[in-house]
Amino acid sequence: MPPLLRRILVLLVSLFAIVTFNFFLFHVIPGDPIRLIARTQKLAPDQVEKLRQSFGLDGSLIEQYFRYLSNLLHGDLGYSFSLKEPVSDVIGRALLNTLILLTVSTIIVVVVGIMIGVFAGSRHGKKADSATVVTSLIFWSLPTFWVGMLLVFTFGVWIGGLPISGITTPNAVYHSGIDYVMDVARHLILPTITLAIVDIAFFIIITRTSLVDVMGEDYMLTARGKGLTRRTMVWKHGFRNALLPVLTASVLYISALVAGAIQVEVVFSWPGMGLLTYNSVLARDYPVLEACFLVTAIVVLAANFGADLVYRRLDPRVAVNT
């Protein structure tokens, strides 16, 4: 079987597993979800009926499962009683905002993380290397949400100057599209820094360790023997190989990034999936919570699939042999 086809098959199986897992998590384990909701919400009888429908609770478990699958395929994620609109609409907006945040910070994290990681790794055993490692370990140990709180305090209370909440300035009037983009960009600064501070540290450590391993390989001695400059040695021969373990670790990174994004969105009220998750926890809005989990898991699955494809492009051994 061609490798790509096999990867897609694995992706589909994982997708199916996630969907089924989600069904058990929210529809089977809690028993009657309505009871769960009624614990914290005062519901009118018609609301209860609506909920029952949206959860698809009539019929046997198998029937419920297939109805759940068919609803998913039609993009029907249920109805949010706290926001009074279909969950799919809510998720659509939030997902876009989260993807903006994740894309911008991933680019920064990858670029800065790799540069510093290569800087440290190519100076293995020297002061600059150990200083980078210790600093990275400290940043890695920071709780993301706390970094966010510190930045809110610094820029919202103490120094001021940068927006600390939301994605746009409330009641702002925009004269052009550029105005709007600039406003969003300003709101992006602190959330991105928060997310990047912790995750860059993670990236630095992985890149650096991987490069240190690679620098000890025989082909690096060959590169040196060829009379290459240090820069060519490190980037053309070292980095290309060091990137492979970094990509293998991307599963961990993607998971960390999603966890970080949830915290950052809560602290900075960034209207994305994380804030939605948080609000649905507070409101005990289970249909929204369920959809948040499902959509996040699928996005993570897709991201891992992408990382795997890149890996396969970069490592000729895998590309040919599987």
């Binding site: 025989d218 082909y219 060959t222 009379g227 290459l228 290309r240 000729p316």
Partner: peptide, 25 residues
């Protein structure tokens, strides 16, 4: 100075060519 000598004047056939060749090029 050594860089201009290496490989240009003195080259090396290393032990164990699997590891001495870069796998990604």
């Amino acid at each position: 100075g050594l860089r201009t000598v290496r490989w240009n004047e003195i080259s090396v056939v290393f032990q164990g060519a699997l590891n001495a060749l870069n796998p990604v090029h």
